[in-house]
Computed example of a mutant assay.
Amino acid sequence: MHSRNIILVGRDRDTWGPAGLTQGVYGTRGNLELVACDAAEGLWVFWFNADSADDPLTTPDVPPGAWSSGLGFADGSRYVDAQIVQSTLGPDHLEVVALTAGGVLESWYWSPGPGFQRRAPVVADGIRAFRLTHRDGELEVAVESLDGGRSLIVSPAIGYPERFWSACDGAAPLDDDAAGMLAAHGIRDAQPGTVRSARSSRDGGTTELTWRDADGGIRHLGIPD
């Protein structure tokens, strides 16, 4: 199937930095959702039609096995990293956490109609790097501060769609073995620090890899189990 094809995402968009990916619930088989930082300001979200050619055609603008051309949002700020997860709340809302060039970690959510909306207050300030995870409506953000300290910030589902953030004891890891998996498949042109992985149910279970190639393009490869 199309899972093993290396695909260029957002070829007509000027983006930079690592891209975040998750499997959503839209489409017959669960489309993929990808968020990336614009090179100047704002964010882009792209979605991948994970349906097969035999499924009912619900999105004629993006054929099965292809990525959309992208939707821009969050104008006015420059971002260095953004990550996305599919929420169990909403219903079917998407959650985005994005890090500005000034070290401010922001929270956004997507809902039908209004689209992406930014929340206040911010998640945290003085942040260098982060990793977003989701469980039953709760968000966990592992962060590394500008001074090198690590901590875990949690937002429960209480009061949704508003979110309130609190620091917890312990520090979750920020990295995974995505770069090693990419190298194991003979791909060695990835820019350092841009390789990300996510799990999906495609083809019975797939590891979705994204990275920046030597020319700066976002690449996507699905590796079935």
Rank of each mutant, 00 (worst) to 15 (best):
P112T: 01
T100L: 06
F46M: 06
D169K: 05
R135M: 03
H93T: 11
R219I: 05
G42N: 05
A142I: 05
P192N: 13
A82Q: 02
F116Q: 03
L139T: 07
E162N: 15
D81T: 07
D225F: 09
I187K: 10
A190M: 04
D176Q: 09
A157V: 08
E41C: 10
G20M: 10
S69C: 05
G205R: 03
D92W: 07
A183P: 00
V141D: 07
S87P: 05
T206H: 00
R118K: 13
L21G: 00
A172H: 02
A171K: 04
R78Y: 06
S197Y: 00
A198H: 03
G10K: 07
S197D: 02
A124M: 02
G102D: 14
A82M: 09
H220F: 15
L43I: 08
L71H: 12
D213Y: 09
A36T: 00
G72D: 07
D125S: 15
Q23Y: 11
V104E: 15
W165H: 02
A129G: 00
D12Q: 14
A183K: 03
L152D: 08
V123F: 07
Y26I: 06
Q191Y: 06
G27C: 12
H93R: 09
A190E: 00
L132K: 03
D81H: 10
A171W: 09
L21W: 11
D75W: 01
A101I: 11
W110V: 02
S52W: 14
D136C: 02
S111K: 14
G10A: 06
I187W: 10
G103S: 01
S69M: 02
P156F: 06
E162V: 09
A172L: 13
W67I: 01
Q86S: 12
G102M: 01
L94Y: 08
T28M: 05
H2S: 12
R219E: 05
E162W: 05
D75I: 05
V25L: 14
S145P: 00
P63Y: 12
L43T: 02
E144S: 04
P114W: 03
D189T: 08
A179P: 01
V25C: 11
S69T: 12
A179L: 14
A19N: 09
P60A: 08
W110Y: 13
G70Y: 07
F164C: 09
G20R: 10
L71D: 11
D203Q: 09
A142Q: 02
Q83L: 00
W165P: 08
V123K: 03
Q191C: 10
G180S: 11
S111G: 15
A40C: 02
S166V: 06
D147L: 10
A171C: 11
D147G: 12
G30P: 10
A74N: 10
V35P: 08
R150L: 03
W47H: 11
S87V: 07
M1P: 12
T100V: 01
T59L: 15
A178W: 00
G65T: 08
G137T: 09
V35I: 10
W67A: 00
